[in-house]
Design a protein around this nucleic acid. Structure first.
Lengths: 258, 258
DNA sequence: ATTTGTTCCGTACGGCGTACGAAATTATTT
DNA sequence: AAATAATTTCGTACGCCGTACGGAACAAAT
């Protein structure tokens, strides 16, 4: 059997790039009338439906079949809109990113940096499934790009080098993400176990004591208790973000002042 | 049809807690001889095999069937060792955590905090699948608890409140995690596309220019280029961690000095 | 010797993403 | 007007997954 060498698919441009940028000017190669039956829905509708699903029932509920059903379509029909599920997730991420508008940046440097982190945090609270998408590939969609540019404007003019600007954004966004993730974990745990955190501790108090007999965690016991009480305390989720954010910004501002 | 009310399973202690702590003294209710056939393997062996699999081929490769096959067992046999796959993931996380030994803490406060972040970062580099496990539930296994206690010792004596100690650890660990996550994303992307990052940029340069026509990203273009070059530059992965870590520690130390 | 609680595991169910190919629909070419 | 070509729709099917179920093999307790 002879083996015809397949054309090397490496070095071919990523097809989902055009899909990501389908709305922006450059991508529009006139919507030339195509042949087959008219498409019954649009890519945007599909992506929006997927976002709704993810918001309501989590990323695991975003199945091709479930989305298709929302439009009364067959599952396989979606593949004429989107190359595969992973690509859809990227489209969802970019599209939902476009929904949060980017406010004007305040004058005060501290406030600017806070805004970057808080915006990210709130977005992730509203769409926790974003935390699970972030894998996969270089997805620089239009809204992601806008976001990054805006984040860079927030750290521009502070006296940071280009590299440091990127890294500063990375710290702020990364920390906001890690807080959002830990909050999500807590919510999920409550959902899975069917009890609040304090209920869980109450239900497992004996077992824990029994099982941890012999090990001792003086600091963890004291600190963990304090933290646990603080977080479930009172009104607010105590803004777990605030302490770390303040320290980070202190550090950055001290750095540029030098 | 009458409905017999099921016994409320809430408030029952979590069964996988005993499994997690199976080695520690308190958990050992004498290994009373059990009835059936002797177990052919041990929970530890299973968990170790699963860890090997995850290290080698990623968390997705950790399937019940694949693990069982390693021991010549049927897939369902695993369920006499472990209640389900999620529980196994938790066991993996705790077990792999126990593998990295916790060095003595240096005197210098800065070095202590660096150590906490670097240790976490290196562990996540060695076992990236940990980044995907972290969901699910309050999993305080023995090795996790040891780790937390050790982390708290690192921030003890600096003059932080109990709550602040917890939060400081959270910032350090969270940031280390976010860096590890972004590195992982990059590696995955290279794997999926089959090109290095710079190859990808080269292959998509034209498409990007075309598609981004009309939008402009002055800062992102400049900064992104600088960052991209720095990261792929020269010898080291440039320790993306270092800049942010330095700022965070600066902030924390300034805070306690106040 | 019998009972009882375990382990082992084959089979099967319902879910997933998606490859494949047929049928229907539409624009283009003849 | 008829034929052709390109597209969309989508039913079916494959190979995965986790795991529920129940029977068989087994070893300790009775």
């Amino acid at each position: 059997m002879s083996h015809v060498p397949e054309p090397d698919q490496r070095d071919q441009p990523d097809p989902s790039l055009r899909l990501l940028w389908r709305h922006r000017a450059g991508a529009s190669e006139e919507p030339k009338a195509k042949r087959g039956p008219k498409q019954k829905v649009s890519v945007d509708e599909i992506v929006d439906a997927a976002i709704d699903l993810a918001d309501a029932e989590g990323l695991a509920a975003v199945t091709m079949r479930a989305i298709a059903q929302r439009f009364g379509l067959g599952a396989m029909t979606l593949y004429s809109y989107v190359p595969n599920r992973d690509a859809l997730l990227v489209l969802m991420a970019d599209q939902v990113t476009g929904r949060t508008e980017l406010p004007d940046l305040p004058e005060d440097p501290r406030k600017r940096l806070e805004l970057v982190a808080n915006l990210q945090h709130e977005e992730l609270r509203a769409h926790p499934w974003l935390l699970e998408v972030q894998d996969v590939r270089p997805w620089l969609g239009p809204n992601m790009s806008d976001r990054y540019e805006w984040q860079l404007r927030a750290v521009d003019g502070l006296g940071l080098s280009d590299l440091e600007m990127d890294q500063t954004v990375a710290v702020l966004v990364g920390f906001a993400g890690s807080i959002a993730r830990s909050e999500l974990m807590k919510r999920r745990a409550e959902q899975v176990t069917g009890m609040t955190e304090s209920q869980w501790w109450a239900a497992n108090y004996e077992t824990l004591n029994e099982v941890m007999e012999g090990s001792d965690y003086p600091l963890a016991a004291r600190v963990g208790t304090a933290a646990g009480e603080a977080y479930q305390a009172a009104t607010d989720p105590a803004r777990e973000l605030d302490y770390g954010l303040a320290r980070i910004i202190d550090g950055v501002l001290a750095h540029v002042a030098r």
